[in-house]
Nucleic acid binder design. Structure first.
Lengths: 235, 235
DNA sequence: CGACTGGTTGAGTGGTCTCAAGTCCTGTGG
DNA sequence: CCACAGGACTTGAGACCACTCAACCAGTCG
């Protein structure tokens, strides 16, 4: 590995918002010897459903989608992850196989921590375990809320809500709206909202006609957040 | 409290399958002074969405449903819990309000652990924290699988799957099938499967005509598990 | 240039929801 | 004991939303 490319966990810009924010500088440095840097290109799979995890990924840059595949081949995106986020910790902690797969949306750099080395590191670090528990709780909460959303809301509302979540999580304020930085296909938006491609296209064009959203090149921009929120019947 | 009614956590018959199975006899006894026994009648609410948790419930007997209410008043059951299971730990651990409510389906007895006393107890008990993490992982996994199920499967399949899950979790083998011990209304089955009452009734009668299920009094019995599994397109 | 990927639109259909009427069951009070 | 109220359950009819299938367009890349 090129030492110039190597970045200590201690100095990582993502650390404040990452799982490792709870570590002391000294502890963070202890992570360095057990990690390796990995690069993934768009479309590459980070891990696949059914496989046993051999370690933990901490995203340095880029974006990935975590999804499950149904019997008919239809995919459901469980969540999107970006810099500072952890990949595959659910399966690792529970000692099971991955139930989801993870695919890279934008060229990504990740730190990989070997399973056993990480477990050893975690041993006796109560603050880290607490923090992991918090993340699990958070993920569980989100999952349960999406559960209701999927069960009760019609596609149109779900789609509006999906856009809002995208804006909140990956959006940057630009003039006249919120720009969603990740490049997502309609298909992927559909998989997030739990519907099919064509329905998504139809509703998106409707939203566009209503000036709720617009496109700049490949990028999606939310122009009228309040309007979308009204459709999503949030708040 | 009547000492005759008091049962030490150490000797609790639910302990082997509970969160506290990882505790030593000595540790389990330490739980006794910080718990109080509570009784709930059918229909009673154990906690409600929006409130801050003041402690943790461990179910001794009975069954509860944990659900979320949508804007239109429609309810979505997140999970059912029975003896040995923990209620409200997600909100407690993350220090948030409850996002769900819990209602008693069958008269229940629960042990209640005060929030601070429990946190103090958990402090430095790495094995307990590990175990909690495992449960969180498990719940997260189930939630994510249901996510896909809800997003992708039509109601008929979801309903069949719901029945199978009920059978697996709360069913007892009887002659000619699996008897589901909990008394659930059609409305509640609908809320589990993420649909409405009428649709549930229609499909259930269809299942009955096809001799996949039958009713004995109020109880639901699964006669043809393989048939249901085929409809649910499991495996 | 053709192949390919991503996006768009149309037509048709079927599943699910809604509204509405009615039945069955159970518990309650006269 | 019966009458009755209310809840749970059942069934029907109609509307509509979302899915499927299919054709087609617009870039992009080799």
């Amino acid at each position: 590995m090129n030492p110039l490319q190597f970045l200590s966990c201690e100095e990582c810009t993502n650390r404040p918002k990452s799982l490792f924010s709870c570590l002391s500088a000294e502890e963070a440095r202890q992570l360095d010897p057990i990690k390796t840097m990995r690069h993934f290109k768009r479309r590459e799979l980070v891990f696949t459903s059914g496989k046993k995890p051999s370690g933990l990924f901490c995203m340095s840059s880029g974006y990935v989608k975590v999804f499950q595949t149904g019997l008919d081949g239809r995919e459901q995106i469980v969540r999107l992850s970006g810099p500072g986020e952890i990949l595959g910790y659910r399966a690792l902690l529970s000692g099971e196989e991955y139930v989801s797969s993870a695919q890279v949306l934008q060229d990504s750099r990740m730190c990989f921590f070997d399973k056993w080395a990480f477990f050893q590191f975690m041993e006796n670090k109560i603050h880290l375990m607490r923090r992991i528990m918090e993340w699990l709780c958070q993920d569980l909460r989100t999952a349960e809320e999406r559960l209701r959303q999927l069960a009760q809301k019609p596609v149109r509302e779900r789609l509006a809500e999906t856009l809002l979540i995208l804006g909140k999580t990956f959006g940057k304020s630009v003039k006249m709206g919120i720009k969603i930085e990740i490049r997502l296909t309609r298909q992927e938006i559909a998989e997030l909202a739990g519907t099919v491609l064509e329905t998504t296209v139809r509703h998106l064009s409707e939203f566009k006609r209503q000036k709720l959203i617009r496109f700049e090149g490949k990028c999606l921009i939310l122009c009228d957040e309040a309007g979308l929120r009204k459709i999503a019947r949030q708040n």
